[in-house]
Design a protein around this nucleic acid. Structure first.
Lengths: 147, 147
DNA sequence: ATATTAAAAGACCAAAAGGTCTTTTAATAT
DNA sequence: ATATTAAAAGACCTTTTGGTCTTTTAATAT
């Protein structure tokens, strides 16, 4: 559904939040291992997330990644949008036409509610809400489970 | 939602069916123009569809592409699956875990019905049913309308 | 027979996605 | 001050996807 970068980003953000709840501030190495993503690529992605303002970081001893608690919760949609645009949850998805509400292809009317559901899903779920939900079973959900 | 090859393939198949209804047998050039896809790439994709048995063709004068009327209608799902596998309509889509019915992540239960709807959509709609639906407005739906 | 037409085959190229690695910069503990 | 630690920056590489083009093969009309 989403590309690898988005996947790793979402997993990484949820993991950071999960650790933050415990008062910890994980680093790249730990995060990469725990979310089962390539080490250097994870570093690159986390950096991008920091630059985009989704995440904070500090260098040096005791450094790592954490969230600014003053900022509002982060909907999955905003992360997805920042990384890969809105192609995943907008558009007809069949390439037969650009879906609008005036001009409909026969797939449009069937796909419209699906698209709306996806949009709702990624809008309502946040990194924080997922971390909350995941707290009973974090190892099962994040660790060593691919794609 | 789907990759370019799948998009062009679906558009191409629907266009061929649309012409076949009129008793015509279009060639690569015509198809590429009408579905607004790159000429040579369209040729390559059509060849692949023929090799996979979705479509028939004849070379030489009066040649072109057509469907074997003895074969059953072609669900979109079978074309999609043949080209890009089932990644588009199976799996959790969030990469947080592999979705199964035993082991659920909190997104799973929300995403499951969406995935099921997508599966239903591509299973129930066929190249032939789309061509039937498209017959009132073919130019609007296929021609010169990108992605 | 042969000229013409059109698909098949396959080599080749470009861009994007995914991933690796080294060097630089900035914290902090001593 | 300086040694150590860890993120930032960015160069570089690989694979996949998307796309182009030439040559070969097979029909058919004359």
């Amino acid at each position: 559904m989403f590309n690898k970068e988005t996947e790793y980003a979402l997993r990484g953000l949820v993991y950071v939040q999960l650790q933050q709840i415990k008062g910890l501030k994980p680093g790249i190495k730990e995060i990469a291992i725990e979310i089962d993503a390539p080490l250097f690529y994870t570093g690159k992605i986390l950096q991008r997330l920091v630059k985009m303002g989704f995440l904070q970081s500090t260098k040096g001893k005791g450094g790592g990644f954490y969230f600014d608690l003053n900022k509002p919760d982060v909907p999955l949609k905003s992360v997805i949008h920042a990384i890969e645009g809105d192609k995943a949850y907008t558009g007809c998805g069949f390439g037969l036409k650009s879906c609008s509400d005036e001009q409909q292809c026969s797939l449009h009317s069937q796909y419209a509610p699906i698209r709306a559901s996806i949009d709702k899903l990624v809008s309502e779920n946040t990194v924080q809400s997922l971390a909350r939900d995941f707290n009973r079973g974090e190892d099962i959900l994040l660790k060593r489970l691919k794609s």
